[in-house]
């Protein structure tokens, strides 16, 4: 996981209705933390939905092949 605002204090127990004030307070806290990003100049930066390991793998292989070609030439 992980970053969870209210620290848990016991094992999962049967819950009744989630207290609305607690949900609202937690939602406010989360939005306050996330709002730090509003200060960041993102310019035309596109979103990164997930990390793409194949890109680095391909990039690594290409660099390595180039290095081998260079080594052979030397």
């Amino acid at each position: 996981m992980d970053a969870a605002p209210p620290a848990p204090t016991g094992p999962p127990a049967p819950a009744q209705a989630a207290p609305l004030d607690e949900v609202a307070a937690t939602a406010r806290h989360i939005r306050t933390v996330i709002s730090a990003l509003h200060a960041l100049d993102l310019g035309d930066t596109p979103p990164a939905p997930t990390y793409d390991a194949t890109f680095d793998s391909t990039h690594e292989a290409t660099c390595s092949a180039r290095q081998e070609e260079t080594d052979a030439a030397v």
Binding site: A4, P5, P6, P8, T9, P11, P12, A13, P14, A15, Q16, A17, A18, P19, E22, V23, A24, T26, A27, I30, R31, I34
Partner: peptide, 19 residues
Amino acid sequence: SSHLYGPDVRVLLEAGKHV
């Protein structure tokens, strides 16, 4: 089945609807 979640996790999940 929201009533089956533990209280801490349920509050977080409900609060996440407001992002």
